[in-house]
Write a protein that binds this DNA or RNA. Structure first.
Length: 143
DNA sequence: AGGGTGACGGAGT
DNA sequence: AACTCCGCCACCC
């Protein structure tokens, strides 16, 4: 079942399309997807969209063509759901494509952003604002 | 039709 | 650095 309103449906589709751009073997965050699609204040709804990703392969976006497993939270942890199995399943999917998942002391399933993170520096909002990439960066994402 | 929940993240304490 | 609050809004009672 698709979402009720056309706006919500468009948002869901934007999320799915953005998630499809995450390269195999890489991960990004809910918040980053939200930024990429121009709604930086809606990371939570990105999670909602992925939660309701259809299994029906006859639809445009579904479980098999949207790499939902490549989206984790900003702390580098595979978000625990009401069902712990969901996170375990996500970890297995990531490991199957070469992502190293480590288990913390409390059972958190973690991924190292320094090695597996995908965070394109040029966002759609940057293009609209005419921002150009700057090579005199002050960040240090690599490790 | 109204209120609670939650695959998040940022600000404040 | 850990914890609480709060904005966000689609889904599910």
């Amino acid at each position: 079942m698709p979402p009720r309103t056309p706006e919500a449906q468009a948002f869901f589709h934007a999320v799915y399309a953005a998630v499809q751009e995450i390269p195999e073997g890489k991960v990004t965050t809910y918040g980053h997807i939200a930024k990429l699609i121009g709604t930086p204040q809606r990371p939570r709804q990105v999670g909602t969209a992925l939660k309701h990703l259809p299994a029906d392969t006859s639809l445009r976006y579904h479980h098999d063509n949207v790499p939902w497993q490549r989206v984790i939270n900003g702390k580098g942890i595979i978000s625990p759901r009401s069902q712990p199995e969901g996170a375990r399943n996500q970890a297995a999917s990531l490991q199957a494509e070469g992502v190293v998942v480590t288990t913390g002391a409390l059972g958190e399933l973690m991924v190292d952003f320094a090695e597996f993170g995908w965070f394109p520096r040029l966002l759609p909002s940057d293009e609209e604002a005419g921002v150009v990439p700057d090579d005199s960066n002050d960040d240090e994402e690599s490790g």
